[in-house]
């Protein structure tokens, strides 16, 4: 049944699938409160079951797309799943776009001095969407390619880099507050940040060039990053891993309570 079709058969199957989907949606809308909870639990469990089974089931040598590999009967479906899941999650992009549309349409309809911002938003969004999609088609015109280049390389890239560089100014004020020496912890934070920053620039390296090699600021910086920063980050990461595993298990088995499963 789940084989590729062509011509009239394809249209027939598509029509059948649409009808089946409508029936499914109608059934879902009629479900009572208690049944909804079970639907949510089942879908969540099935979503995790594939990857859990693929991981836990014993493996053996097998051929996947003509290549020798180690796996079980679910392993050949890992790549198709990796293609399907991004496509499925991409539909969520529309939620954000609809939200922005609702907000800016309201602002345009009010029509005051701030509405110009929303008009700029709409024009920029539509231009970029059309230009990028047209530019990605086979044999795009020179006009489309140039327009896409101006919008992406000229405007978007510049705005992106500038927006993030503005943070440099604000982070300086934040640094002043964070780095005030008030406690041992704040002193350690201050000292490490200064060493890391000075060790990265020439003037810092110049300041300590007359000291013994092991006291050169770039050497101290490197030691801090590899021998202090790395193990602390590793310990945090391992804790994070154990935490996400525990939370994952709770969600997968429907043990997590709260607004998701309850209402």
């Amino acid at each position: 049944m789940f084989t590729p079709q062509t011509g009239g058969a394809w249209y027939g199957y598509i029509a059948g699938a649409i009808v089946a989907s409508i029936v499914l949606i109608v059934i879902l809308t009629q479900l009572p409160q208690r049944a909804r909870k079970w639907v949510l639990f089942t879908v969540t469990f099935l979503g995790g079951l594939f990857y859990a089974l693929e991981f836990f089931l014993p493996t053996h040598e097998m051929m996947i797309e003509g290549n020798k590999a180690e796996g079980n009967f679910l392993t050949p479906f890992v790549v198709p799943m990796a293609n399907i899941l991004p496509a499925l999650s991409s539909f969520a992009v529309g939620l954000g776009v609809i939200n922005l549309f609702q907000l800016h349409t309201k602002r345009v309809l009010k029509w005051n001095l701030d509405s110009i911002n929303s008009v700029v938003f709409f024009v920029a969004m539509i231009l970029m969407t059309v230009a990028h999609i047209m530019a990605k088609r086979p044999h795009p015109s020179e006009f489309v390619t140039s327009l896409q280049k101006i919008l992406f390389d000229g405007a978007l890239q510049s705005l992106d880099a500038t927006m993030f560089s503005i943070i440099a100014f604000y982070i300086t004020s934040a640094a002043y507050r964070a780095f005030r020496v008030r406690s041992l912890e704040a002193t350690l934070l201050l000292a490490t940040a200064i060493i890391v920053m000075l060790g990265q620039i020439t003037i810092g390296q110049l300041l300590t060039s007359s000291l013994p090699d092991y006291l050169h600021i770039e050497v101290v910086r490197n030691w801090i990053l590899t021998k202090v920063n790395a193990p602390a980050t590793r310990a945090i990461a391992v804790g994070l891993g154990i935490g996400s595993l525990a939370v994952g298990l709770r969600i997968w088995l429907g043990l997590e309570r709260g607004s998701y499963f309850e209402n």
Binding site: L28, T44, G47, F50, L249, I251, W252
Partner: peptide
């Protein structure tokens, strides 16, 4: 109904957490 697909992805992320833990952590 929107929670069905959100739940599906929560489940997928939970299933992948086993592999992520074994491979990364």
């Amino acid at each position: 109904i929107s929670r069905i697909i959100i739940g599906f992805f929560l489940g997928v992320a939970s299933g992948q957490a086993f592999q992520a833990y074994a491979n990364d952590y």
